[in-house]
Simulated assay, not measured.
Amino acid sequence: MSMRFRFLTSTSLALLAAVPALAQQALVPAESSIGFVSRQMGVPVEGHFRKFAAQVAFDPAKPEAAAIHLTVDTGSATLGVKETDAELPKPLWFNVPKFPQATFQSKSVKALGGGRFEVAGQLAIKGTAQAVTVPVQLTQAGGKTTASGQFTLKRLAYKIGEEEWADTSMVADDVQVKFRLVLTGVGKI
């Protein structure tokens, strides 16, 4: 083993040890939810996604170093009505064959105090990515941390509900997204 190789190896290990590792948290799917509320002809209609995943590395003491990545299987969307649910995967709505997942990737996390955070990132749905800022409230109990919040997105910006469904008198452009993500492994807030 050359002296140069030993030096590079020991230097690399020292640098890795000096960089604090972020603990990886685990999502508890059975206790988590991602839902949405749209308005159809002025009437609120609630739905949710049955399948999603989260990769989270978050230290409450250093929120600026957080890394959050969510994936939502668009084919798991349901409004609870068989006929309507059959339309959601089609090209005019989520176009699941071409775009099977929506994603959110954090860019920054800012602490606001009292367990409140502001998470900015890119939300990609149906091939379109938009910058969003999401307010998040963290609460802790029984070794679990719950991240909850809501935000509004413009469905037409993501091409959700095209052609005749682009008429906002039928289906409003604003869609409220609500989430509750239960995680294990998060340090004390």
Rank of each mutant, 00 (worst) to 15 (best):
S12A: 15
L13Y: 04
L13G: 02
A14Q: 05
L16W: 08
L16C: 12
A23R: 08
Q25Y: 08
A26S: 14
L27M: 08
L27R: 08
L27A: 07
L27G: 10
V28G: 10
E31K: 15
S32M: 07
S32F: 05
M41A: 14
V43P: 12
P44V: 04
V45L: 12
E46L: 13
E46S: 15
G47I: 05
H48K: 15
F52I: 09
A54P: 05
Q55W: 03
V56L: 13
V56Y: 04
A57G: 11
F58P: 00
F58M: 02
D59K: 06
A61N: 14
K62S: 12
P63V: 11
A65W: 04
A67P: 00
H69I: 08
T71D: 15
T71Q: 15
G75S: 10
T78I: 01
V81D: 12
E83Y: 03
E87K: 12
L88M: 05
P89V: 05
K90T: 09
L92N: 12
L92W: 04
L92C: 00
F94L: 12
P97T: 01
P97C: 05
K98Q: 13
F99P: 05
P100A: 13
Q101C: 06
T103K: 05
S108H: 03
S108L: 08
V109C: 02
K110N: 06
A111D: 08
G114K: 01
R116K: 14
F117I: 02
E118N: 09
E118C: 02
G121I: 01
Q122T: 10
Q122R: 07
A124H: 04
A124K: 14
G127S: 07
T128N: 07
A129L: 02
A131R: 03
